[in-house]
Simulated assay, not measured.
Amino acid sequence: MTTLTGTWLTLDDGRPAVRLTRTYPRPVERVWRYVSDPAELRHWFPSPFRADELEPGATVFFSDAPDAAEQGATGTVLTADPPRGLAYTWGGDELRFALEPLGDGGTRLTLTNVLETATGAARNAAGWELCLTALDAADSGRAPDGPHTGASGPWKELYDAYIAAGFPSGAPVPGLDDLT
């Protein structure tokens, strides 16, 4: 049985989103580096980025995107509040990272992917599930098991499970739709 940690929601402004949360036994400053430092992003993020500055309005440059159409894509920093929060655009989506220090010295990381269209919910939730599993492994000092992105193996199982859980689907799936 596949364990799903994502939730499907509609934000107060009516936009669709998926949200995943993880807790790490690290201080908030350490977890901030997981979401903002290109060297740390390489361990888990599907398309590492760099930004000359992490401040609202700054351009974010993405590389190594799983979808060749996204190579060289850019986004815009929407908010940056080190070490508590970071949000930026990526294609038609918006990514929000909220970090909350916990009383035990750990940190709760909440990733909210505001979707361009609801049909991306199952696809993106499955992808973020694998990405955060890779971050969990990196946080524990382990190498991730297999690829953490792509349309094969674990991703497809998660995707199907999110569809079965009622998440909207139908958005193109790079690498999978190309095979049909």
Rank of each mutant, 00 (worst) to 15 (best):
64 D>T: 01
84 R>S: 15
65 A>C: 13
76 T>D: 00
73 A>Q: 06
46 P>W: 03
70 E>L: 08
37 D>V: 14
41 L>G: 01
41 L>K: 01
70 E>R: 08
78 L>S: 09
50 R>A: 13
18 V>L: 05
17 A>K: 12
67 D>C: 13
80 A>G: 06
64 D>N: 05
60 V>H: 12
50 R>H: 06
38 P>S: 06
22 R>V: 01
76 T>R: 10
44 W>K: 04
41 L>F: 05
60 V>P: 14
60 V>E: 08
18 V>D: 02
44 W>A: 01
12 D>S: 09
42 R>V: 11
19 R>Y: 05
73 A>G: 10
30 R>L: 13
52 D>V: 09
70 E>W: 10
84 R>H: 14
51 A>G: 01
14 G>S: 00
69 A>P: 10
63 S>Q: 10
64 D>A: 09
69 A>F: 12
37 D>Q: 12
80 A>E: 05
24 Y>P: 02
51 A>D: 03
60 V>S: 03
60 V>A: 06
42 R>L: 15
14 G>D: 05
26 R>C: 12
10 T>Q: 09
61 F>H: 11
20 L>S: 04
40 E>R: 10
81 D>I: 03
26 R>W: 14
75 G>K: 05
61 F>T: 09
63 S>Y: 11
62 F>M: 09
18 V>W: 02
37 D>I: 14
12 D>L: 07
48 P>W: 09
82 P>Q: 07
25 P>S: 13
34 Y>H: 03
47 S>G: 14
24 Y>W: 07
57 G>F: 07
30 R>W: 09
79 T>W: 06
69 A>N: 10
22 R>Y: 03
41 L>A: 00
33 R>Q: 12
36 S>P: 07
32 W>D: 04
18 V>E: 04
41 L>I: 03
84 R>F: 15
80 A>H: 11
16 P>F: 03
23 T>V: 15
53 E>Y: 11
29 E>Q: 12
24 Y>T: 01
58 A>W: 13
13 D>F: 07
59 T>R: 11
12 D>P: 00
74 T>A: 04
75 G>T: 08
40 E>D: 10
52 D>Y: 11
56 P>V: 01
17 A>M: 10
47 S>T: 13
68 A>W: 12
84 R>E: 08
11 L>Y: 02
68 A>E: 15
54 L>A: 11
14 G>I: 01
21 T>K: 01
30 R>N: 06
36 S>V: 13
28 V>E: 12
33 R>F: 07
56 P>W: 07
50 R>S: 03
33 R>W: 10
22 R>Q: 04
79 T>K: 05
55 E>H: 11
10 T>K: 01
62 F>V: 13
62 F>G: 08
74 T>E: 07
11 L>S: 00
49 F>Y: 13
79 T>N: 08
68 A>H: 14
46 P>K: 02
49 F>S: 10
65 A>S: 15
49 F>D: 02
